[in-house]
C-alpha cells in the first residue's frame, strides 16, 4: 500500500513543483552519482557522473507521470531502474533520433516494467538510499531546531562525545545537554518517519527503518539504540560519499 505522504509527494512532483524536485535532487542526487561511479568502475569521470545523474532526474520527470503504485516496486528499485535506463540508453537514444536511423530508443515504461523482475539492488546501494534518507531527516531537523540544540545532538550522537565534554565545550549543564538531546532526538524520530514514508513505495520498504533500529515509535530503553543506529547510518553514508569523491577525483 502506498503511503499518503508518498502519494502527496508524487503529486507535487507530477505538478512540477520546483521545491519537490529540488528536494528529490538534493537527497538522492548523491546516491545516483555514487551508483553511476560504481557502475563506471573508475572509468567514468566526475563530470560524466554528474551529467548522468542530471539526465536521470529528467527521465524521472517523465516516469513520474506514469508511475503506478500497484506495481509494488520499491522506491529504491524504481530509482535504480531509471538510473540504469539513463545510463544504457540516453545517449544512444538521442543520437538515433537525431540521425533518424540506428537503434530504436528504449521505452522508459518498458525499463520501468522490468524493474520488478530484475535482481534486487545490492546492500551497498540500499545502504546509500537509507543513508540519504537519514541525512535528509537530519538536515530538516538542523533547519528546524535551534543551533545549540542541534550542536548538542551533533556532538553527542553523531560525533559520539561524552555528555560531560559536550556540556563543558558549549558552556551548558549536563542536565541541559540531556534535555536538548531528548528534544532533538524526538524531532529526528519524527522527521525520519516522514522522510521514510515519503520515499517508500511499499510497506516492506517502509518497515526497513525499524529493521535498521530507526524505529519511529520507540520506548525509553531504545533511545541509545536509536542514537547508535542514526550515527552508524550517517557515518557510513558520509564514508560512502567520501569514497565516491575520491574515486571520481572530484
Amino acid at each position: 500500500m502506498v503511503q499518503d505522504v508518498t502519494t502527496g509527494f508524487i503529486q507535487r512532483l507530477r505538478t512540477r513543483d520546483p521545491q519537490a524536485w529540488f528536494e528529490l535532487w538534493e537527497i538522492f542526487g548523491p546516491v545516483l552519482r555514487a551508483q553511476f561511479a560504481r557502475w563506471g568502475k573508475g572509468r567514468i569521470g566526475a563530470e560524466t557522473v554528474q551529467d548522468l545523474s542530471q539526465e536521470t532526474m529528467t527521465a524521472l520527470a517523465t516516469a513520474i507521470d506514469s508511475h503506478d503504485p500497484s506495481r509494488g516496486v520499491r522506491f529504491s528499485t524504481w530509482l535504480l531502474a531509471i538510473a540504469k535506463y539513463t545510463l544504457t540508453d540516453e545517449f544512444d537514444r538521442r543520437m538515433a533520433l537525431k540521425r533518424g536511423a540506428g537503434k530504436k530508443p528504449m521505452d522508459l515504461d518498458h525499463a520501468y516494467d522490468q524493474a520488478g523482475d530484475e535482481a534486487p539492488p545490492d546492500e551497498r546501494y540500499e545502504g546509500l538510499i537509507i543513508g540519504a534518507k537519514v541525512e535528509a531527516a537530519l538536515r530538516s531537523v538542523e533547519r528546524e531546531t535551534e543551533m545549540m540544540d542541534f550542536e548538542v545532538y551533533r556532538l553527542r550522537v553523531l560525533e559520539g562525545r561524552q555528555g560531560k565534554d559536550v556540556a563543558i565545550s558549549l558552556g551548558l549543564s549536563e542536565a541541559a545537554v540531556s534535555r536538548r538531546l531528548t528534544k532533538v532526538r524526538d524531532r529526528v524520530r519524527s522527521n525520519l518517519g516522514d522522510v521514510m514514508a515519503r520515499f517508500s513505495f511499499t510497506d516492506e520498504e517502509l518497515e526497513e527503518a525499524s529493521r535498521k533500529g530507526l524505529d519511529a515509535n520507540p520506548n525509553k530503553a531504545s533511545d541509545a539504540l536509536f542514537d547508535e543506529a542514526v550515527a552508524e547510518v550517517y557515518q557510513r553514508y558520509a564514508q560512502f560519499r567520501a569514497e565516491l569523491d575520491r574515486s571520481t577525483g572530484v
Binding site: 548523491p30 541525512e135 537530519l138 538536515r139 538542523e142 553523531l158 560525533e159 558520509a238 560519499r241 567520501a242 569523491d245
Partner: peptide, 9 residues
C-alpha cells in the same frame, strides 16, 4: 559536500 552536515575529519 554535505552542506552544514559535513564532518570535520
Amino acid at each position: 559536500a554535505h552542506g552544514n552536515l559535513s564532518r570535520f575529519t
